[in-house]
C-alpha cells in the first residue's frame, strides 16, 4: 500500500509532481547515453565555476482588449513581461541583478491589428496579430514573446562565456553552456524500472543522463537531481530536472550535469520561506520578485490604459 504525502508546495502552485501521461511525449528517450546497464545515483562535482547566471522571466496580462470592428468584436490582450538575470559571483559571494528588460505587447486575434494608445511616457505597447480568435492562443503568443526574450538573454550571456541556468525547459538548442531548469515533473520521461533510481538520490546526486528527442527538433540531454532531503517527503520531493542541448558533446554535458548537481543544492530555497521549496531557487525567487516590481504597479498600469483609450474615443 503506497503512503500518502502532503505536497510541500503551497496548493496554489500545483504540485511538484503532476505526472500527466497524456503529455508524455512521443519523443524517443534514450536512457543509455551515459550508463547502459543498471542505474545508480551519481555524485555531483563542483568544478569551481566562478559565475552562474540565473535567467528567468515573468509576465502579466495588463488588460483584455476588444477591437470594435464592423464585422464584430475582435479579442485582444495587452500585457507586460520582464526578463533578466541574477549573476552569482561565487568567488566574491555576491549576487546582482543584470540585464533586466521590460517588454509590453498587445496581441489581437482574427489577423487584425491596432495601435494601443500610449499611456504615459513609459507605457508603450507594440502590437502583434494572430489569425486565431481563441483567448488561449492570444495568451500563448504573449507567453511566447516572453520565452523568446528569455532565450535571447540566456543565449547572449552564455555566448559571453557565462554559465547560465535558465528557469524552465530549454528554448534554444545551440551548443552553448546553458542549462534549462525544470521545477515540476509533468512528463514521465523514464521507463518504470529506471524511474526507481530517482527515489534513491541523495542531495547533490543525480541520475545518469538520458537523451530526449534524438533526431527531432529539440534534442537535449536531461537528468534528475535532488536538491534537498525533505523531512517527510516522498521519493520525488526535492527533485528537479535539468537539461542541456545535445549539440554539446556528451563529455561536456556530463561535466555540466555534475556541476549543476553539486551547486544547485546551495541555492535551493527553504520550505519555511518559499511555497515552492526547494525547487524554486533562491536567486530565481528574488529575480521574479524584482521582475514583477519592474513591470510596474498593475493598478496604475490598468488605469493609465483605460484613461488613454477613453481619451481616444472621446
Amino acid at each position: 500500500m503506497a503512503r500518502i504525502h502532503v505536497e510541500g508546495w503551497a496548493p496554489d502552485h500545483g504540485a511538484s509532481t503532476v505526472v500527466d501521461v497524456a503529455l508524455a511525449d512521443p519523443e524517443k528517450v534514450d536512457e543509455e547515453v551515459e550508463v547502459a546497464g543498471e542505474w545508480a545515483p551519481i555524485d555531483g562535482a563542483d568544478d569551481g565555476v566562478e559565475e552562474v547566471a540565473f535567467v528567468d522571466g515573468v509576465r502579466r496580462v495588463d488588460a483584455r482588449l476588444t477591437l470594435d470592428e464592423e464585422d464584430g468584436p475582435v479579442p485582444g490582450l495587452c500585457g507586460s513581461y520582464a526578463v533578466g538575470a541574477v549573476r552569482w559571483d561565487r568567488r566574491l559571494r555576491r549576487s546582482r541583478f543584470d540585464a533586466v528588460s521590460v517588454g509590453r505587447l498587445a496581441v489581437f486575434g482574427s489577423g487584425r491589428i491596432a495601435e494601443v494608445p500610449t499611456a504615459g511616457r513609459r507605457l508603450v505597447y507594440r502590437s502583434e496579430s494572430i489569425p486565431d480568435t481563441d483567448p488561449a492562443a492570444l495568451l500563448r503568443r504573449f507567453h511566447g514573446a516572453m520565452r523568446t526574450a528569455e532565450a535571447t538573454l540566456a543565449e547572449g550571456l552564455s555566448r559571453d562565456g557565462v554559465f547560465v541556468v535558465a528557469d524552465g525547459p530549454l528554448n534554444d538548442f545551440s551548443a552553448t553552456e546553458k542549462v534549462g531548469y525544470v521545477k515540476s515533473h509533468r512528463v514521465p520521461y523514464l521507463s518504470v524500472e529506471r524511474r526507481r533510481v530517482v527515489a534513491r538520490l541523495g542531495p547533490g546526486q543525480r541520475t545518469p543522463l538520458f537523451l530526449i528527442g534524438a533526431g527531432g527538433d529539440y534534442p537535449r540531454y536531461s537528468w534528475y537531481l535532488r536538491l534537498a532531503a525533505i523531512p517527510g517527503g516522498h521519493g520525488w520531493s526535492g527533485v528537479a530536472r535539468a537539461e542541456v542541448a545535445s549539440a554539446l558533446s556528451l563529455e561536456t554535458a556530463r561535466r555540466i550535469a555534475d556541476r549543476v548537481t553539486a551547486i544547485l543544492p546551495a541555492v535551493a530555497s527553504e520550505p519555511h520561506l518559499d511555497a515552492r521549496a526547494p525547487q524554486n531557487l533562491v536567486p530565481i525567487g528574488a529575480l521574479e520578485r524584482e521582475l514583477r516590481r519592474r513591470l510596474g504597479d498593475p493598478g496604475v498600469v490598468y488605469r493609465a490604459l483605460r484613461e488613454a483609450t477613453m481619451e481616444r474615443t472621446r
Partner: peptide, 20 residues
Amino acid sequence: EGAQYESDTHRIAAEGILPG
C-alpha cells in the same frame, strides 16, 4: 533591500546567493 526574511541577510552577505 530585497531581503524578505531575516535569514536573507546571510544569503545576501555571506553566501551571496540572493541579490540584495
